[in-house]
Design a protein around this nucleic acid. Structure first.
Length: 619
RNA sequence: GCCACCGUAGCUCAACGGCAGAGCAUACGCUUCGUAAGCGUGAGGUUAAGGGUUCAAAUCCCUUCGGUGGCUCCA
């Protein structure tokens, strides 16, 4: 649910940017942190043998992790919530105390997670490769309220009574699983989420917004608007696009294909499978081995469903000799790839096993890198700008110098990362730098958007790669006649069409701008005798490129209007005797605005303008 | 993959150890109507699949499949 949050404050580091700085100093933050301690107290009353781990505030609330002797039930959670409110009303002070390591160890005898945290505070902390990631803490402190003492550096509210019991809630009535210290090799704990606000109306508003958000969920709207479906018989994570969804997707793809060609991209087409040796040469093989469909053995050869398009495009580059005069050389493809994601990771269209990347690989000289990179970023800004999407963040993913997940020369990595940051600065693009988020072959700039449940998803990405050109010994002939190595830019703007459509569905709540609407005008003949006229109007509209549908059912006009509204069709064209006589259509917008009777040509001109301009308005 | 929960008609849901139901959608009649849902009739189910407990299972237990929330991982 909450992707980016600080780690336990008892447990140091916080990866949030300056935005969260103010939150961490806020009263709300102290309230939630205090509520987490109160949750732990209540839980220990309910489960005296529970082991307690950590319990930080997060963006919309707080959580606490426990190791429990049995599965927790809804009744348990209700009991805990009630008990938390009691503790609040009893108004116990939060008292701060600095302790020695031995005092700390004594306090948490039998609490192995806390003891581990104490040892880390005492000794500092190292990662699995033995690299120091935290220095020993200057001091160890406790906070106590009522019967409960936690290892904690604070801050807290002065007393539990500072918290408004009516604005306190266990957020999700289902508990969650979470690994100790986020490591799937370590024990799995039960995480209980809660939230707290200063006032009850704020809590109510939050819970209401959560309910409203669920209605925009692309999985719900995908069903309601007949956009896509899944079938266990086809396989999980493999989307089936229904006609309306396929039309939406087709419209987006057509739009982007045209933009690509305008910008000098050259379409290529590559197959869905390839010999595994291709991926061994590229170096992708070991990195994707855990998330691949099993290779297909044919005679003596092994083939794989392609998990990425890069090596294919590289082989096209290698099929001929290139001059510096050709660069930047841009190959683009809507390339469908398959990745065997772990089953629990699949979600609607945002995380699937077969998806289509709007992929492109650009081969550039070192001199061209910065400018080309900026062009790609501007391209992305144009695409999301057209759709009215402004809510995204830019993340520069760099190599984690301590990890062995990344290959290639240090100097080149630094050069590439430097170019990315420089490009962002020159474009005035706010961004965060996050070590460890790079591709294995190079650093990248990702555009990250949130779904209605506030989960973050990476969509567009621009990556700088010196490694694959070297692995495949790519060359171009330079001005001086020598052979030089190009740099590759990997880029996708939608990221994956599936994920992008999911975000679009939620962004528009299913109410797409006219140019994207699967059906742009619904023709509503008032009675059967108007169907013929409706057909003649439909022909005219189709001739002008409009996507139309006639509702020739036996329903009454009112029911046809209701059905069209449900589908958020932009234009409802009602036609009866008057219209047939006068050659008009009575135009009702999905906003319920009535434009009255318009001559057919006038309506076509209006709609065609709206559609061709990709307007977010309907007139 | 892991922890927890869920799976009843195409969709949304009811029945919660004792004869499997409703609304919407669909089919067929009637209705032909000027801006948010006309009336009627029918069809549609091995209650995800398989096994077990029980006189009796949609309901309890087990396994598998699928979904949801979270974690891990990722476009």
């Amino acid at each position: 649910m909450h992707i980016r949050h600080g780690e336990c404050p008892c447990d140091l580091n916080n990866d949030g940017a300056n935005m969260s700085q103010r939150y961490e100093e806020s009263r709300l933050y102290r309230i939630r942190h205090s509520a987490a301690h109160i949750m732990a107290e209540a839980m220990l009353e309910r489960f005296p043998e529970a082991l307690i781990a950590i319990g930080p505030p997060i963006e919309d609330g707080f959580y606490y992790d426990f190791s429990l002797p049995r599965a927790i039930t809804e009744e348990d959670l209700q009991w805990v919530e009630n008990r938390m409110k009691e503790i609040v009303r009893e108004n116990h002070p939060f008292t701060y105390r600095e302790v020695t390591p031995d005092e700390a160890r004594a306090q948490f005898q039998g609490q192995p997670f806390k003891l581990e945290l104490i040892e880390d505070l005492v000794n500092g902390r190292e990662d699995e490769n033995g690299n120091r990631i935290a220095e020993p803490a200057a001091k160890i402190s406790f906070y106590t309220q009522d019967t409960f003492t936690d290892l904690c550096r604070g801050p807290h509210v002065p007393a539990t009574g500072e918290i408004n019991p009516d604005a306190l809630s266990i957020t999700f009535k289902l508990p969650a699983g979470a690994y100790w210290r986020g490591d799937e090799k370590r024990p799995q704990l039960t995480r209980i989420y809660g939230t707290a606000f200063e006032t009850k109306p704020e809590l109510d508003e939050y819970l209401h917004a959560l309910e409203e958000a669920k209605k925009r969920d692309h999985r719900i709207l995908g069903e309601k608007l007949d956009l896509f479906t899944f079938s266990p018989l086809v396989g999980k994570g493999l989307a089936l696009w229904k006609p309306a969804g396929a039309m939406l997707r087709h419209t987006l793809e057509t739009w982007l294909r045209d933009l690509l060609i305008e910008r000098g991209y050259r379409p290529v087409v590559t197959p869905h499978i390839a010999n595994v040796n291709l991926y061994k040469t590229s170096g992708h093989y070991p990195y994707y081995s855990a998330s691949q469909y099993a290779p297909i053995q044919v005679d003596e050869e092994e083939f794989m469903l392609k998990p990425m398009n890069c090596p294919h495009h590289i082989m096209i580059y290698k099929s001929e000799m290139h001059s510096y005069r050709e660069l930047p050389l841009r190959y683009s493809e809507f390339g469908t790839v398959y990745r065997y994601e772990k089953s629990g990771e699949l979600t609607g269209l945002t995380r699937v096993r077969g998806f289509t990347q709007d992929d492109a690989h650009i081969f550039v000289t070192p001199d061209q890198l910065l400018n080309e990179f900026k062009e790609v970023v501007r391209f992305f800004q144009h695409v999301v700008g057209t759709l009215g999407i402004t809510e995204f963040r830019a993340r520069v993913g760099t190599r984690d110098p301590e990890s062995d997940k990344f290959v290639g020369d240090d100097a080149l990595w630094d050069a590439a990362a430097g170019a990315i940051v420089q490009a962002c600065q020159e474009l005035g693009l706010p961004h965060t730098v996050e070590p460890g988020e790079a591709a294995f072959y190079g650093p990248k700039l990702d555009f990250v958007l949130r779904d209605v449940l506030k989960r973050e998803w990476q969509l567009g990405t621009v990556q700088v790669d010196y490694v694959l050109p070297a692995r495949f010994e790519l060359e171009y002939v330079a001005e001086d006649g020598t052979r030089k190595r190009p740099i590759m830019i990997h880029r996708a703007l939608f990221g994956s069409v599936e994920r992008f459509v999911a975000i679009l569905i939620e962004h528009f709540a299913g109410v797409f701008p006219a140019w994207l609407s699967p059906v742009q005008a619904l023709l509503i003949p008032i009675t059967d005798r108007h169907i013929e006229y409706a057909n003649s109007v439909a022909d005219k509209l189709r001739a002008r490129g409009l996507r139309v549908e006639i509702d020739a059912s036996k329903n009454r006009m009112q029911a046809k209007i209701a059905a069209g509204r449900e589908r958020h069709i932009p234009y409802l064209l009602i036609m009866g005797d008057r219209d047939a006589q006068n050659g008009t259509v009575s135009v009702r917008l999905r906003t319920d605005e009535d434009l009255g009777a318009l001559p057919v040509d006038e309506f076509v001109t209006l709609a065609a303008n709206v559609i061709s301009s990709k307007s977010l308005e309907l007139k």
